[in-house]
Amino acid sequence: MKTTQQSLVAFIVGLLFAVGLAISGMTQPQKVISFLDPWNWNPSLLFVMIGAIGVHVISYPIVKRRPSPLLDTKWHVPTRKDVTARLLIGSMLFGLGWGLGGFCPGPGLTSFASGDARAILFVGAMLVGMLLFKKTEPYLKLKE
């Protein structure tokens, strides 16, 4: 029963997230690319971060005052503090891909539903990349 309720919440969060991404402009790769372009800088997407963090920086400590979430017995929030080579190299590769394609995972998936060929290609390649990391992880010898 709890898992059904959790899934319903997650579905609604997914819907809201898609709407937020679309209204904000994050699902238009040309805007993402010009946000990352110092030679033709369009700062509008900076306001997406300001809006999202502005809300959550206030809501996070309020929500976390509760002993547990409404539909679970414990919190599942990451608590790690160590900055590893894996974190840095992974973020570098992600950044290169983000600037090259203009999509990060959420907007890619949202645009996938429009049937756009580039969004579909992006999501397919992203899934392959994710599975590829899981396959190659044992050979990388990076501390986790």
Partner: peptide, 17 residues
């Protein structure tokens, strides 16, 4: 470019958590 971008985003985001 889109395919290379997708591979990098998929690989990099899982690696970088």
């Amino acid at each position: 470019q889109i395919i290379v971008a997708g591979l990098l985003v998929g690989y990099g985001t899982v690696m970088g958590s």
